Amino acid sequence: MQDSIRQLFTENIQTMIATGEALSAPIENAAVSLVNCLINGGKVICCGEGASSALASHFAQLLLDKFEAERPCLPAFALLSNNSSLQPDNQQNPDHLARQVRALGQAGDVLVAISMTGEEHNLIKAVEAALTKDMTVVALTVDNSGELSGLLGNQDTELKVPAHRPARVFECYTFLLHALCELIDITLFPQQGDL
């Protein structure tokens, strides 16, 4: 069993190294998009499906509250999942994320879409809604991430993790979101000192 444990750590480390090498420029672009949005009075809207919705909530809370150092609150929130509707499951609106983007998003805002497959219908519709509102999209995706990747334009940023195992992808997404928080903090609040 200890060999399996060591192999899990090795696989995680290799995924992180490959992601760091592949995504250093896109991570910088994503951080700049988020910083520019916040400086210009915009807000960060986060969404995901399934386990990714927990990451969206986590990222929004870190921006709204704090990451590691005390600092002013930043305008961010996660879109609501579809599990609190009064409608039965088979009658719920399949575009519930897009409806929220259309209602709450504005030009200059950033949509952070966290996708495990690139084929989640609700995320695709949310990205489409964001683009029609002249929002910028930062998408966390995986290789071969399908339709969602095809929607993104030059102003958008795709953080495409070079991994296929869902557990490794989720771990990497968590790190990427923490890295973005740190980059935002050191850019907007350098007076807060070393983190």
Rank of each mutant, 00 (worst) to 15 (best):
E70A: 14
V101D: 02
M16S: 15
G108M: 00
K133H: 12
T174G: 13
T136A: 06
L23F: 10
L180R: 01
A113V: 04
A60Y: 05
A126H: 05
T141F: 11
P88D: 08
A103E: 02
H164I: 13
F175V: 14
N144R: 13
G50K: 02
P166W: 11
L79A: 05
L131M: 08
R99S: 15
N40G: 05
N144W: 09
S81H: 06
G146N: 10
M16L: 15
A163Q: 08
L176V: 04
V127I: 05
G20E: 09
L123I: 07
A113W: 03
E68H: 15
L131K: 15
Q2R: 14
S53P: 03
C181K: 00
G153D: 07
C47M: 01
L140A: 09
E28I: 11
V32N: 15
E182V: 09
L152P: 02
C181A: 04
C181M: 05
E171G: 04
K125R: 13
C172D: 02
E128N: 02
E171V: 00
I13W: 12
E11G: 07
T136L: 05
K66G: 07
E119Y: 11
N154W: 10
N122H: 06
R165Y: 12
P75V: 01
T141A: 13
R71E: 08
L63D: 03
L195V: 08
S149A: 10
S149C: 10
A126Y: 04
C73Q: 15
L97S: 00
I124C: 03
H164C: 11
A22E: 07
M135Y: 09
V137H: 06
L148C: 01
Q2G: 12
C172W: 07
A60D: 07
R102F: 13
A18V: 05
D95L: 06
E171N: 03
L23S: 07
G41W: 02
M1H: 12
R102W: 12
D156V: 00
E120V: 07
E158M: 08
N40S: 09
L34P: 06
E68K: 15
N90Q: 11
V138F: 05
S24Y: 14
T187Q: 09
P88H: 07
I124D: 03
S149Q: 11
E28K: 14
S24C: 10
A98E: 01
N40P: 04
D3R: 15
